[in-house]
Design a binder for these strands. Structure first.
Lengths: 214, 214
DNA sequence: ACCGGATTCTATAGATCAATAGATAGATCG
DNA sequence: CGATCTATCTATTGATCTATAGAATCCGGT
């Protein structure tokens, strides 16, 4: 669709950059709006009109920036997962106890809810509706992330820091379940802030998987 | 819509019951189909045509049994929540330790996934799309259920069985988050069965909230 | 064989939605 | 000024979806 081959003929010093930069800024604004309506009404429940309304432009104008609604969903979902894997990998690489790593992982998981809640929510709830290619791409990242957590738990079991009779995969699923659900209720009736939730959840989790209470 | 006042004029021995019974059976089959597609593709992603296809009938024929797609969603969601509150209340009323009650609550929460997974999933993921009246009705039941759990936890804290420094509401949210997430992955890649998941999750949870390991 | 209700079908209205085509206003720059 | 590029707009197409209206079919009881 976008027949923009590399702009080979760019003339020297002058800066036709203004556009490229503005374009990127506008795309980002549109993604913000898309994330908001996708998170609120779901992918199929949200119309491109809803997105345009937030920005105060006409529905058709969106297509100057995005080739399709599906692509917009993919971009929103990617922005919702990306960072999770890197942050987790960094925590897992620290030279410290497995318990401490778990605390770090819980914190790292909840942190994005502070500034990207709509993206995270869209990733969590709407990624099923991605076309197969995008879903696989997103799924790979997501699974890699889970594996990082699972490894920390396995090592904690192997080292004797965590219960030997526990299944690392099930522990991972339990931990992720707890953490993911925060995205659903944070900012609704309950008034908890991210840091206290992270601390309490890590505490609950560790009490359960550590051999001795900390 | 349903102007069925009590059938006062039913003639004696003959059985015009056949219809009423068959109608109910058919409605139930349609609800099953609706639950399946709602769970799979989401409320807005699923068309009434999809529901009809499962049953091998024409799309318009559905409207002989249901006045609208929204009502069908309400019925599916209700069938997805109902039972949770009663089962939990029953467990909470038992004369036993708070820990034992938590084990029972986790089991009771996961049990419906065995025979009503699509209804539970639809309730969990699609209830936001209900019209306000239905949403409130479903929400009341759902909140009452949470309160039962919260009370068991509070009492466990008060009695000294659970950590004094823990917030019962946050514990409730953590427990529900863990349990709800099972609906998302059960029967996918992982091969766990409901009873083992219930036992392990209760174990993780209790280790975290009990004062001493059990 | 026929009647009457129960159930399903055909046909279609009416609305909404994603996406395309082409026009236009505004800025930038030679 | 005039040319070009950017961003948005108007107008519309074609597909899809829920829901309604009314005809056709099935089936048990007589």
């Amino acid at each position: 669709m976008n027949t923009r081959r590399k702009p080979e003929l760019r003339i020297v010093g002058t800066a036709p950059q203004t556009s490229g930069t503005n374009q990127r800024r506008r795309q980002s604004e549109i993604l913000d709006a898309a994330a908001k309506v996708f998170a609120q009404r779901g992918y199929y429940g949200a119309s491109t009109q809803d997105i345009a309304d937030i920005l105060g432009i006409k529905q058709a104008s969106l297509y100057y920036y995005f080739p399709s609604k599906e692509i917009a969903l993919e971009r929103v979902c990617m922005k919702g997962v990306e960072g999770f894997f890197e942050a987790a990998t960094e925590v897992a690489a620290q030279k410290t106890t497995a318990s401490q790593k778990i605390r770090g992982l819980v914190q790292a998981h909840l942190a994005p809810l502070l500034d990207r809640a709509d993206f995270v929510r869209t990733f969590l709830n709407e990624r099923h509706y991605l076309p197969p290619a995008s879903r696989k791409k997103v799924g790979r990242l997501s699974r890699a992330y889970e594996k990082v957590i699972e490894k920390v738990l396995s090592e904690g079991v192997k080292s004797g820091e965590f219960r030997k009779d526990a299944d690392p995969r099930l522990m991972t699923l339990a931990m992720l379940g707890m953490c993911k659900s925060v995205a659903q209720w944070l900012g609704k009736d309950d008034v908890y802030q991210v840091p206290e939730v992270a601390e309490e959840y890590a505490h609950i989790l560790l009490g359960g998987i550590s051999k001795r209470s900390d």
